[in-house]
Amino acid sequence: MDDWSETKREGFTAVKLRTIRYFFKEAFVNLFRNGWMSLASIGAVASALIIFGSFLMISINFDYIAKNVESQVEITAYVEDSVDKLKINQIELGIKSIDGVKEVVFVSKEQALEEFKKQVGEELLEGIENPLPNSFRVKVETPQEVAGVAERIQKIDGIEEVKYGKGVVEKLFKITYWMRLVGLAVMAIFAAISVFIISNTIRITVFSRRREISIMKYIGATDWFVRWPFLIEGMMLGFTGSLIAIALLAAGYSYLYDMVKLNVPMIPLLHLEEFYDYSLGLLLMGTFLGAFGSGFSMRRFLRV
């Protein structure tokens, strides 16, 4: 009887069902008692997540577009005019032996001229000696290897010049990189703002109930017993805020998606369903922000 063996019951381990029911009841009552502040908190979480989510969706789409463009990139290797048929076969074998090369197609001077004629019109080139060189069109396994493969082809004897969509791809990647960075920074700022607003909402509840809290503690309530209703209140604020954010993001995205598809159909965009996993992530994040905000504002009042 004289040892404090019950001490072990602290925390999550032995929480009883009726206690959990009590926690949720308390949380709900407070949520409605602080009507306006609750709405403000929900709004804060929602706006933070909408801004973060927009950046996320845009940068994921940029990634997708960049990959798309990249996969269409091929290398054109021009052969020196002095090179003869036999050497050309050797060069082809040389290119094929490079790691990461998927496909090599030889385009002769004549074929190149035919194509060119189709593009600019027959008459213009009448009577002129064929100025176009023999060339290879090379496709690679993965877009990231383009630059490396191009460099190695360049080194092969008899190759005059190598060209690929250099610059375009790098630019796209740079844009997605910055998008992610800015998105992250904006998210961090808005996450801090939501934590601040939520912790203030909860602080008002806690402050108006500090007497009750101290009474609870003086009659033997554990910190967790006092804390849980507030944590649940915060989680419900965060959860609701993120649901609103997700709904608005989904609506906004499908609207823009339809607009783009209608007006500039050649831009590849991800379908809304591709973001399903991300929306779960947002939901978790909002709920966590809520719990964190309320836990943060609780600390001082428990110290009795």
């Binding site: 404090w4 019950e6 001490t7 602290e10 007497r211 003086y218 033997g220 309530a221 554990t222 910190d223």
Partner: peptide, 19 residues
């Protein structure tokens, strides 16, 4: 701090202002 609630459960306190 974790043990304090279990001390308080063994004591019944009547506060001057009732609380």
């Amino acid at each position: 701090p974790k043990e304090v609630p279990y001390l308080r459960r063994r004591l019944g306190v009547v506060f001057q202002d009732f609380r």
